[in-house]
């Protein structure tokens, strides 16, 4: 969306999509707002209420800073295929991360590379800068594709992210966990009470067959745990679990212990070490005592 936001905003994406989708697929509607003039009033709240995810695409440093610090959005999606005449500052980006706003890396323009390498170079440069500045946190990897050709598999994208300085783990998170958290947080912001408390439908209480629950199930489980416990105890007690070396060691210890009782000597004496009486200082000891 370019230009001024109209007074009454309505979702441009048709609600029942014109083609069939699998039942397990949840379609999330997203709006990306290009932001160049930070002083202008963009009705972000009305936009946010219409779309599921609201992303902001700042064009210059000031609008980026504003987006990081103040604007109510879910995602900051910089156009990484163009060159930015400034560095990303950790302080302002950390501000956004603290507010729970993530950053998006769109790899699509770099893959298609329609303008002879410039977009790819810019993408790699900006992505490494962004990863450096955010220390790899709060990064979402997405295609930003206008054609299906620019999409890549998740593992391929993670590999690219690894080459750009994001770790393997962080890369996996950027594809999976972070993207999920953006969606969930956006949903929380819209639906819940002050973005903190939400009432969810926890499902019906499963109906129980009274006969089963009274007799069959609990007894069964109990017996199972009992059996399990016995197994563990048996394992501890079996002689097989003790190695020969351990057996020998134990035998020796037993011998020493019995010797100690019979001879009424302290345990250490049998090992031939020096026993110091408490009241005798060490330096007063005669040399030949340990013979």
């Amino acid at each position: 969306m370019i230009g001024k936001v109209p007074a009454d905003v309505s979702s441009q994406i048709p609600d029942p999509l014109p083609f069939t989708t699998p039942k397990s697929l949840q379609v999330i509607r997203r709006c990306t707002l290009h932001l160049s003039d930070p002083s202008q009033n963009h009705q972000l709240r009305t936009l946010a209420s219409v779309y599921d995810v609201l992303a902001i695409r700042p064009d210059n440093e000031r609008s980026l800073q504003q987006a990081c610090e103040a604007l109510e959005c879910d995602l900051i999606s910089l156009d990484l295929s163009s060159r930015f005449p400034f560095y990303f500052k950790y302080t302002s980006l950390a501000n956004a991360l603290q507010r729970g706003v993530s950053f998006e890396i769109c790899y699509g323009p770099g893959i298609l590379n329609s303008d002879g390498g410039a977009s790819r170079r810019n993408l790699i440069s900006n992505a490494t800068q962004l990863i450096r500045a955010t220390k790899g946190r709060g990064i979402v990897l997405s295609s930003g594709a206008k054609r299906a050709l620019a999409c890549r598999g998740p593992a391929d994208v993670v590999n690219l992210a690894v080459l750009w300085g994001l770790g393997q783990e962080r890369g996996m998170e950027a594809v999976g966990k972070e993207a999920r958290s953006v969606v969930v947080q956006a949903e929380m912001k819209r639906r819940s009470f002050r973005g903190v408390i939400d009432v969810i439908y926890g499902g019906e209480k499963p109906k129980r067959d009274p006969g089963k629950s009274a007799k069959g199930k609990p007894e069964k489980t109990k017996r199972k745990t009992d059996v399990l416990g016995d197994d563990i105890r048996e394992d501890d007690a079996t002689p097989n679990s003790i190695s020969k070396r351990e057996q020998r060691r134990q035998a020796k210890k037993a011998r020493l212990d019995t010797g100690e009782i019979l001879e009424d000597k302290p345990k250490e004496a049998s090992r031939g070490s020096i026993i110091l009486p408490d009241n005798v200082p060490a330096e007063d000891l005669p040399d030949g005592k340990n013979d």
Partner: peptide, 12 residues
């Protein structure tokens, strides 16, 4: 292998 993989990813 990551170089080769990246090259494969960038092929259109």
């Amino acid at each position: 292998y990551r170089l080769v993989w990246a090259a494969l990813s960038f092929m259109t």
